[in-house]
Amino acid sequence: MQNDNSKHEHHVTGYGTYILVWLALIALTSITVTVSGIDFGMAALGIALFIAAIKSALVINIFMHIKFDEAIFKVFLLVSLFTLLVIFILTFFDVVNR
């Protein structure tokens, strides 16, 4: 991908890849629903968010094509996620210490 030609070197994801990702997403959904029925106490929220994060990574990387796009899109994504993380941390720093 040395050339910045956007139209003729476009990465085409195969049907099979998408279907595999979809199967994984459905499997993770059934896992998260099943696990929510078990009492994990305080860990339950962490487990649910961890599974949601894996599902998001699959959607963003494969469905949204980030894995195959130019590096600048990954930079964009990391900057915005980092911004969100900072906002969460600073807010909780305030809430917890009130």
Partner: peptide
């Protein structure tokens, strides 16, 4: 989904 429907 997990934040609203899966809290037990």
């Amino acid at each position: 989904f997990p934040l609203f429907y899966l809290i037990h």
